[in-house]
Design a binder for these strands. Sequence first.
DNA 1: GACAAGCACGAACGATCGTTCTATTCTAGT
DNA 2: ACTAGAATAGAACGATCGTTCGTGCTTGTC
Lengths: 207, 207
Amino acid sequence: MTVAQRPSPVRASKGEETRAQILAAAVQQASSAGFESLTIGSLAERTGMSKSGLFAHFGSKLDLQIAALDEAARQFTESVFLPALKAPRGLKRLRALFENWLGWPLHANLPGGCPVDAATREYHHQPGPMRDAALERQRLLDREITRMVELAIETKELAAQTDASQVAFGLSGIILAFYRAELVHGRDEARRHARQALDRLIRQHAA
Amino acid sequence: MTVAQRPSPVRASKGEETRAQILAAAVQQASSAGFESLTIGSLAERTGMSKSGLFAHFGSKLDLQIAALDEAARQFTESVFLPALKAPRGLKRLRALFENWLGWPLHANLPGGCPVDAATREYHHQPGPMRDAALERQRLLDREITRMVELAIETKELAAQTDASQVAFGLSGIILAFYRAELVHGRDEARRHARQALDRLIRQHAA
DNA sequence: GACAAGCACGAACGATCGTTCTATTCTAGT
DNA sequence: ACTAGAATAGAACGATCGTTCGTGCTTGTC
């Protein structure tokens, strides 16, 4: 969920190509069943490779998990964050981010919602590289969102005394509640509630 | 002169007692590492039992997981929901529920937040008894919260035209954002943001 | 004190886990 | 076209998974 880190070359080598395929499958599986479900065996079957052949691309299960987390963050940046930057700074951009975010799991075929969120929940109590990586991503994300809110203050669309981090808190709550409501009440009702909640949040802090 | 030697006044049978101990450990572990991490072996080590001895209490891993989910829901009802019912209906009760909820994971030593939430995320894409049970719990919870909001409308503390389910959506978002912010920014800041978000939510729908 | 029932243990099962080897196939630069 | 190195497969390892089975303790009842 941060800035892109690797521009893709024109033609990747065979190895990098299959590695990318593996990671794509890994992200999907992690989204729906958690990063701990990323077993070498199941992933090998899913991609039609041998266990050892797949394993050789990463060297250890932990490295595979971290690579999958990075890939999930990269996808988020690519599908949600960067497109929002095309909108003019301020509320328009904030709303664009929000809409991209709501549609992301469906569009990217990530049935379990944001994988980084899943990882954060999964590892927050188990010290180690996965926990560190997930929390770092979340911090970065928070910083980006807060910055976007600050831009909306600078454009005077939000009141000058607005607490940007408080708005970011509210925004993350709407997204999280949306993912939950999507499961409990269905997509349409979840969208309706989420949009209304965002409108109310913005209205409340409007200049 | 028969000495009735009963260690505790109302003592459940030995079996039920150890079963309860196992479930208590299971709920804690599920909270921090997910229900899929509930392996017979690790749970046996944690409780100082043998694998087969522990296993005999449940008959299958699935039954153990479901029992753990039920126990988590029972704990939530006992520690969060029922105490709130002592407050007078309306906003007071809603606020009591909210405060109990915020403090629950810490007080109940559930480092990973609400286990039912964790289960919902973990299984929502894998059809089966766990998914069904988790979603059913969430629906029940939503109904209870919505009902509490409706009571606050009846007491005229909230506006008559308030959409109770929308307020319930907002409330769940605040709770979810709180759990997340607790990990990313620490408990104090998370509490501050959560309380202010609740105040704003209530003010917005106040009569 | 005998006896049935409830309860826990230890050993073992097949399956799968992550990982390490060696061997074979394929790709890419010349 | 040749070849060095990258990429993949296959077999096997010890560990752990969920589960079964047979056995021995406890416990409460006659």
